[in-house]
Design a protein around this nucleic acid. Sequence first.
DNA 1: GAGTGGTCTAGACCACCAA
DNA 2: TGGTGGTCTAGACCACTCA
Lengths: 246, 246
Amino acid sequence: MMNVTASNVLSYQPLYEQIKRMLTQSLIDGEWKAGEMIPSEMELAARFQVSQGTVRKAIDALVSENILTRRQGKGTYVSSHNGEVQKLRFLRLAGPDGKKALPQNQLISCVRAKATAKVAKKLNIKSGSAIIEIKRLLIFDGRPLIYDHIVLPAQEFNGLSGKQVDEYKGSLYRMYEELYGIPMVGAHEEIRAVEAPAEVAAALKLKKGTPLLQIDRIAYSYGNRPLEWRLGLCLTDYYHYQADLE
Amino acid sequence: MMNVTASNVLSYQPLYEQIKRMLTQSLIDGEWKAGEMIPSEMELAARFQVSQGTVRKAIDALVSENILTRRQGKGTYVSSHNGEVQKLRFLRLAGPDGKKALPQNQLISCVRAKATAKVAKKLNIKSGSAIIEIKRLLIFDGRPLIYDHIVLPAQEFNGLSGKQVDEYKGSLYRMYEELYGIPMVGAHEEIRAVEAPAEVAAALKLKKGTPLLQIDRIAYSYGNRPLEWRLGLCLTDYYHYQADLE
DNA sequence: GAGTGGTCTAGACCACCAA
DNA sequence: TGGTGGTCTAGACCACTCA
């Protein structure tokens, strides 16, 4: 067994933290891809020369971050944006009944461009780097409610085209995963109330100046690596954004 | 030791779930109040006739819900809204730097009234029950940014007056805890973008119709008991609402 | 030094799933 | 039936706090 007490005092880290980091590294290296099963707890315990309980605690932490998913009797899997529930994982908009539903997707444009200083900062890339810009409408119950402006670093999403966006009706995160091997595991959102700009008002068929919910989102892959910036403008007359506090 | 396997198959619940429920009941019964230390893990293990590890797992669950707080070397405490960090627990509004700060509080009114059907439904009380209505401004960096309308069931907050609201500058949740023994442990929020009504626009010194973030919050005490309804209207030019997704 | 939470182990047994 | 995750135990030892 590993000698716990001998670890460097100045950089003391519990064993399960170290194992958590090693598991994360394996995910970054692509040893296990989204949707796949990882080795059993006993196998991992043998690999890392620790007890099953310690591996379990490391996995617990990753499960609570929605990075891994346990299925009793089957195994532990890499979380993906596939499946009915997972597909809506990052969607916080719900109807009057509090229920969420996958919207329809209507592509407006998908072009290559160069990153402005503002965008470069959001994506942690160099100003002027190649980016891909997507604009689209999201349609709930037949009503266009969200105008999305999405920016991706072109280097990681090489060859992405509007055709692909169309094919993956509405679920871009599933597309990132399946076509580019990039699973998004978290996001940070800043929310404001703004007046609808002319272009957006026209697309959503609203009067210019109508109040809209502006959701400024940066999405991250493993290791807090920002790989998508998204600015959504939402009409919140029928639908609303929901959050739970603890 | 308790016989785990003998528990009713139809209603099988892990031991630690049962213990979690018993701990929650003790909190509801007021055995331990906000800010107080609960018995040590060994003491609880002896009381419930289980191992320390099982008590630990029950406490883990309550800690992850922010209901209990561990302090290594000292003990496990009932979470409260006191203290610098805890005070801002339910505040999601942050400045341009992403930092949160406790706002100043300016009371507009505090009156007794009867619950309309809408309010009664939110607070799960009978229509026509006595309620307390508070209106106030929250002031960040000298700017009035939030117009709050707060409704409480009068039965649980007997004798609450504007004077008390003033004394607990801005931190109502601390007041609920200290004066009425009611710790809020969670909340559900619905967020929309709306036009400022005349009354609110005047109070915040804005043009009528300015887009504001409307935060409709129900706050809960132990056992998901709703005890506060709050409708906040926020100017989000300088500050923004922030959320993290996983 | 005594008491608390935090980590780790080894092993037993249960619940669930698939073949 | 065998493999997976899930629960529970008993005991050792570490890290932290405070008197």
